[in-house]
């Protein structure tokens, strides 16, 4: 006799319970109980919590937790095809961009790509020390034959960061303009930020085939877009109210105000958001190697899977080096912007 039989008996649901009685799968505990000649009367001290599984023992009409999760899976699979019709073509350009950038980065000769990257670094940061550090890092990575992997990782971060900024900045601006939109967006951002990164991948694996690059592209963008959205919103809200009032008093249109005052004054915050976005994209691109994202992450995965300690450690170190490079370059350009408008 199960613990909550009395409940269904007293409420008068016994008939409803028995109507759906069927010989379902039996748990080990049930089998053991049967073997011991029926369950003993449970004492009040050991009354189990009335969870779905416990109630199911007393009344088979109540679903079990594994039925519950299975029904969610079924529901998702049910709408999956319809979602795919919309999402597939919508996200297809992402695959092209990722694949295009990947072949472009890998296809460019190493000496040309490194030279271009050093020029870009110097242009963005105007800092000789940072440029020398970047050069040193790339030569080191190339010397230990991690150059191709690093460049693959970099190309994915490059595409995902640009897309995150292109989508995140307008969302952040909209949030700063409308309190309603902000209230509605912040819980979504909170969720995206706290959801364990592996959990992102699960619905995506069902939606898209694992061989498609947009699968990891979407995962990275969803994870990395949060800081740039938040800091754009914050930056625009923090713009000096007096300056905004002056802009209004001289009759600026909303567009003049946005591009002439708000975005320039929010730029240090937006740049801080982009720095964070780059860092988060790097964190996610490593995890995304589980779903076929190329780059340094695959080496880490190999290290774990084959217990190749050296491979795992060296690629881990390479990721750290890449992270430091990206961080220093974006921080140096942020510092340059801050210096230009400090007051």
């Amino acid at each position: 006799m199960a613990a909550y039989d009395w409940f269904f008996d007293t409420v008068g649901l016994r008939e409803w319970c028995n109507a759906t009685k069927s010989e379902g799968t039996m748990s080990m505990a049930d089998l053991l109980a049967k073997a011991n000649g029926g369950a003993a009367e449970t004492s009040w001290w050991e009354v189990p919590f009335p969870s779905l599984d416990t109630l199911n023992k007393s009344c088979e009409a109540v679903i079990r937790t594994r039925d519950f999760t299975a029904s969610i899976e079924q529901a998702f699979l049910g709408v999956k095809d319809k979602m795919k019709v919309v999402l597939d073509p919508l996200t297809q350009p992402l695959s092209w961009m990722l694949d295009g950038a990947l072949s472009l980065f890998v296809g460019t000769p190493w000496w040309l790509l490194i030279a271009l990257m050093l020029m870009l670094t110097y242009y963005a940061s105007r800092n000789v020390l940072v440029t020398i550090f970047v050069a040193f890092s790339f030569f080191l990575l190339a010397f230990i034959d991690h150059y191709t992997y690093a460049v693959q990782t970099l190309s994915i971060i490059f595409v995902c960061t640009i897309l995150s900024v292109l989508m995140g900045v307008p969302i952040g601006i909209a949030m700063s303009k409308s309190n309603t939109f902000q209230r509605f967006t912040i819980p979504i951002l909170d969720m995206l930020q706290t959801l364990p990164s592996f959990v992102y991948l699960i619905p995506l694996i069902f939606l898209f085939s694992v061989t498609e690059s947009k699968l990891y592209g979407i995962a990275i963008i969803m994870y990395a877009i949060v800081p740039v959205v938040r800091l754009t919103d914050l930056g625009i809200r923090l713009v000096d109210k007096d300056v905004i009032e002056a802009a209004n008093a001289f009759g600026m249109t909303s567009r003049q105000k946005l591009f002439g005052v708000e975005i320039p004054l929010a730029l240090p915050n937006i740049m801080a958001g982009i720095n964070q976005t780059i860092m988060m994209a790097l964190a996610m691109v490593v995890i995304a190697s589980l779903v076929s994202a190329p780059g340094l992450g695959t080496l880490v995965l190999r290290g774990i899977r084959n217990l190749e300690l050296g491979v795992g450690l060296v690629s881990g170190f390479a990721i750290v080096l890449l992270a430091v490079v990206l961080d220093r370059v974006s921080k140096a350009s942020l510092a340059r912007i801050n210096a230009a408008q400090s007051h």
């Binding site: 000096d240 007096d242 300056v243 002056a246 008093a249 002439g260």
Partner: peptide, 19 residues
């Protein structure tokens, strides 16, 4: 139009564009 060409304003905290 009124704000652009009829009335100008000077503020206590100056409110200049810092950039």
């Amino acid at each position: 139009e009124l704000r652009q060409s009829q009335m100008s304003m000077v503020f206590q905290k100056f409110a200049l564009l810092p950039h």
